[in-house]
Design a protein around this nucleic acid. Structure first.
Length: 205
DNA sequence: ATGGGGATCGTCT
DNA sequence: GACGATCCCCATC
């Protein structure tokens, strides 16, 4: 008997990240971010990202390399995880050339894999439509913390990205980044990208 | 050795 | 819409 051929799911390689951070950011939309732990696989399609460039005063690497942000200066595709407000983790991927200090922040996923596991990690109070919505929420859902900082997303057994098609009914919306502090010119940079249904004209936030 | 401040989120009014 | 939680990092003394 014949089985339908499994869809080719290509893992995103390090070369993908060796480009300008803004290019990488937009191209990450639609890719699938997954983590694997003893509890199983969980993840979803990337639907919101932001770019951070070393030369921009909102960027963690703006004032140079520190123990906290060292992963931003590592090879393209290196995972950078930091703790904000003492309680939420955020996940990024280093981009462009090694030592550049540029990174893409992943801000939201559309849940795909391991939804029950993600719900368990988020707890009963998590709003169903915000399971992976927001950088802190998605890290909680996928079990991402500082323990994975410095991993290579192209080869790590714990975190991976897979190429994902962008639907014809989806469109990319660009805007200023959320919650950033810095020089007014940097705060205003349109370095946030979202994947939204084409029909939707609804402003978000 | 110390103090200020976050690339957030949920709860409360 | 405002605010408090919470803690590590980093700059400064």
């Amino acid at each position: 008997m014949t089985e339908a051929p499994a869809p080719a799911v290509e893992r995103v390689t390090g070369a993908f990240f060796a480009r300008d951070v803004a290019v990488v950011a937009e191209h990450l939309l639609g890719a699938v971010l997954c983590t694997t732990s003893d509890d199983g696989v969980s993840g979803g399609r990337i639907i919101e990202v932001e770019a951070y460039r070393r030369t921009d005063s909102c960027c963690h690497s703006f004032r140079g390399r520190t123990p906290r942000n060292a992963a931003m200066f590592a090879a393209p595709g290196t995972v950078y995880v930091y703790l904000v407000y003492g309680m939420h983790h955020c996940v990024n991927f280093a981009c462009d050339r090694e030592g550049q200090g540029d990174a893409v922040l992943v801000r939201a996923l559309a849940p795909m894999n391991g939804v029950a596991l993600m719900r368990a990690r988020r707890g009963p109070t998590a709003a169903p439509d915000r399971l992976c919505g927001g950088p802190g929420n998605l890290c909680r859902a996928l079990g991402i913390d500082r323990g994975i900082d410095g991993a290579d997303v192209a080869t790590s057994p714990r975190i991976a990205l897979y190429e994902g098609a962008r639907g014809a009914d989806e469109t990319v919306v660009r805007s200023a980044r959320i919650g950033v502090v810095g020089a007014p010119g940097d705060v205003a940079l349109p370095w946030r990208w979202r994947l939204v249904p084409a029909a939707s004209r609804r402003p978000v936030r």
